[in-house]
Design a protein around this nucleic acid. Structure first.
Lengths: 343, 343
DNA sequence: ACCAGAAAACAAAACGTTTCGCTTTTCAGC
DNA sequence: GCTGAAAAGCGAAACGTTTTGTTTTCTGGT
């Protein structure tokens, strides 16, 4: 592999001059040509490790997410990468596969690899661990949390207004005349799941509808209208059936993430229940499916692109050392696609 | 940020000794304690840039895929990362979002960042470009292609036996008595899509069933039994309807990727067609859905985990400089979950 | 033709490691 | 308490850049 020294030798110019030119500095026209020629001939490519060692910057952002199998994150990261790229940064993605230890490990590896910033969709990591990781490098590593916040950890974050999302969904179901409204929620330890649950309960309260208490465990046990699943297909499928098998099944239902929505829709099809007609329904995230299904279903769409873009914006400013109020917590509005049933 | 020099000063030991110990060498017991203490107290963390600069290794593998929104790749990469991690490597993922230029750019950035190896699910990049990128670093960068091969580019690759996958599917449909069998294929420029199409045609040929010619364009135009979609939900949905709207619709259908399978299933539901009963059906990849749907559908499952694992194995061997026959082309068998319709 | 000032080129040091070739220390066995 | 081999420790050079402060070259106005 040829280095800047080789270019120097071949051109007879000094290291400093080559380096300056390569970084956008000015050189005499004839030298410019000579350097270009040498770079081309030698196939010279900058060694980013060496550069980073000197400059303490990698122009690289690390992204850590719980899994690569959720399309929602794919959309977020696509927008994030676009935003960062426009400023000359590249993003690298790591998944921790819902593994508590791996989550920390990936974060540490990224820090050691000297990324200039981190975007994190956290799940298990504690405020304390995160604090330590963020400061491991001496100065504070720029970091933006997406989708989920961590209690006790002060950090820029981009989240969805989950509370109002489910609030609006339930409100709409109430408006359509429903009173026995169910929710299939996610694990309450995840901030998004919790907020969605709160939105559901608050809507019922505000409209004076009796709302039973939340089951204590993270389990889906318990009867009544509230079910807590694991945010996966299976949960949606099983809990939908469970709800409908009750003596007094709900007349409407709100399902709070993509996979569980898919599960519930599948179960409904299977039982011959026409969602939207037989049972009021609002799903989450499965926008394509719900639009195209017949009849089309109401659905809450999360602003994935916007989330990625905002995360990029905030992180770029932090990395540039811009003075911003700290922390930035940006709450994005989700969009309820309301599709009332028509004959 | 404290460096190895700080540790050296604090302990009174030389740089060389500290370095040796930190890399697994032996030191006297009392020095061991002293170093450990200093590392802890100073919060020392190795600077991987500096290390990589010296050693020419980053213990890092770059993964480049067309999008982060396909769960299939998520599964592949999860297994890949596990395999690599066991050998001390970490993987970083980049998506090029189906963008031709970005595909090259991401590859180049990775090479410049001195990853030790690359795993690539290629789409647009040409053999020539890839050849240049692979050799940019002087020696040949270890590289493994997954899911898709590139004509004219010699490289280790892990692919699925797509031909036999659709061959088997069609064979099964024939066995069930079908003669008018359709396929919804993907863009024939993608090697997987092409192979799946060939399997379909060969099965028909082998069983002496008349098979019309493939439409010339990459378009879904054309009548008859063969349709070419874009590998997305919309294509599956639209082409299914198109097929069924014909005067002589097929009696059976093979759909050749996840998104299009979802689209076709949705369209069928919508038309009141019960797949498996009214129309013979084999889908692709949507294992969960097809298992749980009623009646359950036959589906081809790609060995995602195995693909990731094999890719890891091969790449590790190459990076370790092991002498293997070149190139390694590993064809994994897909699995046909056959679920004949029962009353 | 000269000079000042600007622009370009330069030499050398530094970034934080690893490693090579030596020197010193340790310790087992007599 | 020696001896010699093995183990541990050491100093310095090197990896490929950027950067700082200095020197050289160019430019144009008189």
């Amino acid at each position: 592999m040829s280095t800047i020294k080789d270019v120097s030798k071949r051109t007879g110019l000094s290291l400093a001059t080559i380096s300056k030119y390569l970084n956008g500095g000015n050189v005499r026209e004839k030298n410019r040509r000579v350097i270009d020629e040498a770079v081309e001939a030698l196939g010279y490519r900058v060694n980013r490790n060496a550069r980073s060692l000197k400059t303490n910057r990698t122009m690289t952002v690390g992204v850590v997410i719980p899994t690569l199998s959720i399309p929602f994150f794919g959309e977020v990261l696509s927008a994030l990468d676009r935003e960062l790229r426009a400023a000359g940064y590249t993003s690298f993605v790591c998944s921790y596969d819902f593994d508590r230890d791996l989550e920390c490990e990936k974060l540490r590896v990224l820090c050691n690899n000297n990324v200039d910033g981190i975007v994190l969709a956290a799940q298990f990591v504690s405020a304390k661990e995160l604090e330590e990781i963020r400061n491991a490098r001496g100065s504070e590593m720029p970091m933006v949390l997406i989708d989920r916040t961590i209690p006790g950890f002060t950090c820029d974050s981009i989240v969805v207004d989950n509370l109002n999302a489910t609030y609006g969904a339930v409100e709409q179901l109430i408006g359509a005349g429903h009173r026995r409204i169910s929710i299939i929620a996610g694990p309450l330890g995840i901030s998004t799941a919790n907020e969605r649950m709160v939105g559901y309960r608050r809507a019922l309260e505000d409209y004076g509808i009796d709302c039973e208490s939340v089951p204590s465990g993270e389990d889906d046990a318990g009867s009544g209208l509230i079910r807590i699943g694991q945010y996966d297909f299976e949960s949606g499928y099983r809990l939908f059936n469970q709800l409908m098998d009750q003596p007094m099944p709900p007349t409407a239902l709100c399902v709070t993430n993509y996979d569980m929505t898919m599960g519930a829709v599948t179960a409904a099809h299977e039982r011959g229940i026409v969602l939207g007609r037989d049972v009021g329904f609002v799903g989450f995230d499965a926008v394509d499916l719900c639009r195209i299904v017949s009849p089309p279903l109401s659905i809450i769409e999360q602003p994935a692109k916007q989330m990625g873009q905002k995360a990029g914006e905030v992180l770029l400013k932090r990395m540039a050392g811009e003075e911003l109020p700290y922390p930035q917590v940006i709450r994005l509005k989700s969009h309820l696609h309301n599709r009332p049933y028509k004959e």
